[in-house]
Nucleic acid binder design. Structure first.
Lengths: 361, 361
DNA sequence: CTGAAAGCGCTTACAG
DNA sequence: CTGAAAGCGCTTACAG
């Protein structure tokens, strides 16, 4: 026998029923299936409910229907701008569709990821799991229990949204090639990251196609520090431009270059990825848009659509493209002589005629 | 009659009871009040539960006990680094203490803030409300309904954690004065912001005490853009240094100065506040630490402590101090001549002997 | 120490 | 169109 009610002032369905002179079933139906009732009945119930400030108790509804009205968003690191932006898009969309959202930060560990997924399960109708660090088997176990959509991991059979930055990275390499750079570096992230893998591949292929020398460096944890620390190696290998796995690393590279008195883009060109902090660095970063907010929004839509209808389409690719700002420019003189085409100094060359190019500051 | 169970595989208390040959009450007590039972009974029940993978359904528990085991965190903008860091600290602490956390982004509007507080109320045991944009009256209504702790708003009678950056801003102004700056600017945030108000005051008082000329500019919405746009006015008034309401605005100022070919700190000194992105700008920002993570953690502790015991202590002040990095330095020559004390060029002067000074890169 | 039973606040098949 | 009743999965005062 429970004697404690959460909020003593909160009217219950029984109070409304008594006040309106109808049964509790009728009050319930006034909100969930008004079409089954006489309009007059609905009107009366609603009037009373309004007056009393009645709002159906979601916890009771959840227990009765098995639908929680909640989703959970699991991310490796809230503080990473990519995930902040993603979360923002996701929670806004969930709210719009009437869902409340739990937040889980896994602190980049697979253990916490697993625990959070387990703990939250009863309280949610489904999960969106961004950039999972867990192994595939465990993810599948969770996906079997609860609807789950994954972001940026390509798991056959699990609904997923993948941000394809392949084209964007190819555009970026082409931009650098057109600017006359002959040796470029790619400063990557963890090998287990799907996003990193596809970026590496795109850079390698395009560099090969354009006859550029490519030096590849890997940061285990993509961070500002890692970027700054990579500068020495990048410079030593003779590169005049670098692409980074994300904007945070690119920003680190910028700091490291500045430490050595090199200026961007005069002495060195830089390209990042994500387009969250890129507009706020100085100089503003040329970057590939990772459509963070859209990825979050899309994942939530897939999840919620799938809850009421058929399981959602499995593989959803959204494509981020190059945004040219001020961190890229012609290769320094001795290299510029060799350049393939000669773009005007003040205007970036066409990257890929078939693709739209947004340029913003 | 509910026919749909959320997770068909999930064992219920009845299944465990049957399997263990005890009543449902005994199963329940094995988890919530094992001290009331024979150790042997508890052991048997736990063994069966373990085997079946039984875990009490939190939703049912919530309905029965009125305790949700959840809290909600309401912030104006997830994507703002200050709030990201705060959320990170808060959700980690909530998790540690066994609570799951809902996330609400109000998009800087008071309407959404009000709606989220209302929608989430049934599902949580309490709220932490960061930098509320709502008027005091509405906040008090919500606080009367549900335990609520506020961050960075000084509301008598409501438990709150206030990050006091007053001392830090005073230290910063002293630093600039010691460096020989005679005219400084403060680029502020919204007038309704408690944090902004206390910062303005600290800057005004210290500037007056040191005989500095202070120019005050206000950005309605503290953003990178706002910072960049403020540069012209700042320069026009003859200031050689500026303090910004936060690091984002300071970073905007840096970009605007760079656009005009001015370098930091040689031509102009800059101080921010928050210490989240400050270490990643170039040059790294001298800033006041706003202890974001600690504020989040403390708020959650207050809230959860207050749930089981007496209402928590009301006014909890934590103090953030100055962190000197590379964006501050001696005033440019014509001013330097007038300077009050003559600190060595390579080392920042003592800010305030009574206070510890952390210097990091 | 343990169980039978009522209750938390809803929803909904079943009658009427 | 509407109500009485059972049920969602727990907890706990009351007996024994």
């Amino acid at each position: 026998m429970a004697r404690r009610q959460a909020d003593p002032d909160r009217p219950t369905i029984s109070r409304v029923a008594a006040e309106a002179g109808v049964s509790r079933a009728t009050v319930s139906r006034s909100f969930t299936h008004p079409d089954l009732l006489l309009p007059a009945t609905v009107a009366k119930v609603r009037e009373v409910a309004e007056r009393l400030g009645y709002v159906p108790n979601q916890v009771a509804q959840a227990l009765s229907t098995g639908k929680a009205g909640n989703i959970a968003l699991i991310v490796p690191d809230i503080a990473n701008p990519f995930f902040s932006a993603l979360m923002r898009g996701a929670q806004a969309q969930a709210y719009r569709r009437g869902y409340a959202t739990f937040l889980g930060d896994t602190d980049e560990t697979e253990e916490l990821e697993d625990l959070l997924l387990g703990k939250l399960a009863v309280q949610v109708d489904g999960f969106v799991l961004a950039s999972p660090r867990q192994d595939e088997k465990r993810i599948r176990v969770h996906a079997a229990r609860r609807p789950l959509v994954v972001i940026n991991r390509d798991l056959e059979g699990i609904p997923r949204v993948l941000v394809d930055t392949t084209v964007g990275f190819a555009q970026a390499v082409n931009l650098l090639a057109d600017y006359g750079h002959r040796t470029i570096a790619y400063v990557g992230g963890p090998k287990s990251s799907w996003s990193n893998q596809q970026r590496v591949r795109a850079v390698e292929e395009t560099a090969a196609a354009r006859g550029l020398k490519l030096v590849r460096l890997d940061a285990v944890r993509p961070s500002h520090e890692a970027g700054r620390d990579a500068v020495e190696k990048v410079l030593r290998c003779g590169a005049t431009a670098a692409l980074a796995v994300d904007d945070v690393v690119a920003q680190g590279l910028m700091a490291g270059l500045a430490d050595r008195g090199l200026s961007v883009p005069a002495d060195f060109s830089l390209v990042g990825c994500d387009n969250v902090i890129a507009a706020t660095t100085y100089p503003p970063l040329t970057t590939i848009d990772a459509l963070c907010a859209e990825a979050g929004r899309t994942a939530v839509d897939l999840l919620i659509d799938g809850l009421s209808a058929e399981p959602p389409s499995e593989r959803n690719v959204i494509r981020g493209e190059l945004t040219i700002r001020a961190s890229t420019g012609p290769a320094p003189e001795r290299h510029a002589a060799k350049k393939h085409r000669s773009p005007a100094k003040s205007e970036p060359p066409d990257v890929s005629p078939s693709l739209p190019n947004r340029t913003e500051r």
